[in-house]
Design a protein around this nucleic acid. Sequence first.
RNA 1: GGGGGUGCGCCGAAGUCGGAGAGUCGGGGCAGACUGUAAAUCUGUUGCUUUCAGCUGAAUAGGUUCGAAUCCUAUCACCCCCA
Length: 345
Amino acid sequence: MPVGTAGTVKAVHQRELEQDVRAQIILGNTYHLYLRPGIEILQQAGGLHRFNGWNKPILTDSGGYQVYSLSHRRKIKEEGVTFASHIDGSKHFFSPERAMDIQRIIGADIIMAFDECPPYPSDYRYAKNSMELTHRWLKRCCDHFDQTSGLYGYEQTLFPIVQGSTYDDLRKASAEAIAGFERQGNAIGGLSVGEPAEEMYRVTDMVCQILPKDKPRYLMGVGTPANILECIALGIDLFDCVLPTRNARHGTLYTADGVMNMKNAKWKNDFSPIDEDSPCPTSRFYSKAYLRHLLHSEEILAAQIASLHNLSFFLWLVGEARKHIAAGDFTVWKNEMVERVGRRL
RNA sequence: GGGGGUGCGCCGAAGUCGGAGAGUCGGGGCAGACUGUAAAUCUGUUGCUUUCAGCUGAAUAGGUUCGAAUCCUAUCACCCCCA
């Protein structure tokens, strides 16, 4: 495919997206609050007619990301990965088969393949070997998953993960291979690991054009509000990210009008609500000055309020995205929102 | 009233038996980072100025000395003991 500017590519893709009726209902974000729409499309596609008894879908990761984030205390071999516990140094072995077993036991509705997430930047040779290992592990994941069944009387489904770092030919090969497994949904991994946003968009766009559009496309680990909106435009249906909660704990709040660092001195005497337009009662009830005080006092309540706020905002944001896709004015709305949410308050 | 001790950065410690300080450690303050969660974490900065450098600075005022945060005198403040 031609690699034009991200803006051009996204615009083209957005037309396809808006024509896709399914896309209207499958936007969401993973982890408890955000997963429901993704489950709905899965059910429409013929999968997961019953999910776990809480009536709230669960998605679990395989430990593949920890192969990346805990790279200083693990060893990768063909068979699997050995981690040394940061608590007591004890050894823990993860293989594709064990990752499937564990996620079966947890009872997640969507379970993720055990992969290797290569760091950015990775040289071509490393990225290629890593991708091939991920593909071999995926075969083992699928075989083991298909030979076992859910432990609690409901279905589970396995999503494979596209890798290939930032190399176009590797990403293309990986996306085609992953699509070939014909699972009920597909994931894109190995992004949001430090690469420039434009790289992330370029790769996401390319992969989205290969992965089937009638199955959920899940972009792992993304991202900022602007990242999410841009990637929705590229065809992504599911997201998950630690950013709303981790940054909340560290004092960064996201709103429709921009980003606030609630620790800043400028909020010291601002007794207006944290976010008077928030759908979250907590954000409308407590003042900026109070939340700043809690953060400076290192009160756990600060982390709780800020996390509630950010999660509510992200949920609201993807909810609005759904509405605007349905209304047919997503691109106009998205372009305006990307500018708004990126501002610094 | 008598005796002893201590005084430097926003705070608390450390250091001082004359020899390089805008200078140690911790906290606080100010700001930044954080993207499939090991981490309530990490980074920068925190006298002034015209900032590749310069200036002022060890309670206050003097003194000794080539040289004083360090030694001496007085004053002030605080702490402890005695009355």
